[in-house]
């Protein structure tokens, strides 16, 4: 009962709130913000589809290139090969 009375008083206080007028110049400020904001970029479903096709084409090309190109010797293997062949005891490197 006591709670009901308190609740009714709460409602009276809340409902006694008066309407307020919006501040002056609000429209101008909104208009200014609209002019400052950049338009949202919209992509149509066709553009999404075209982007997906391009991506798939690129991926398939990478896959094709990986599977068909003969494997090359790695840089480490090559440097090992050069070092192995290099012989400091022979003067042939100076014969030029």
């Amino acid at each position: 009962m006591k709670n009901e009375k308190s609740y009714n008083r709460l409602l009276q206080t809340v409902e006694a709130t008066q309407q307020a007028e919006p501040p002056s110049g609000l429209y101008q400020r909104i208009h200014q913000k609209i002019n400052q904001s950049t338009p949202e970029i919209r992509i149509s479903p066709w553009q999404y589809a075209a982007a997906a096709v391009l991506l798939l084409m690129n991926l398939s090309w990478v896959f094709y290139a990986q599977t068909t190109t003969p494997s090359e010797q790695s840089e480490t293997e090559l440097s090992t090969l050069i070092v192995d062949e290099y012989n400091l005891e022979t003067p042939e490197y100076y014969n030029y």
Binding site: K2, N3, E4, K5, S6, Y7, R9, L10
Partner: peptide
């Protein structure tokens, strides 16, 4: 109402 019972608002 529950919350009001814990305060002495009115």
């Amino acid at each position: 109402k529950k919350k009001l019972s814990t305060t002495n608002l009115f």
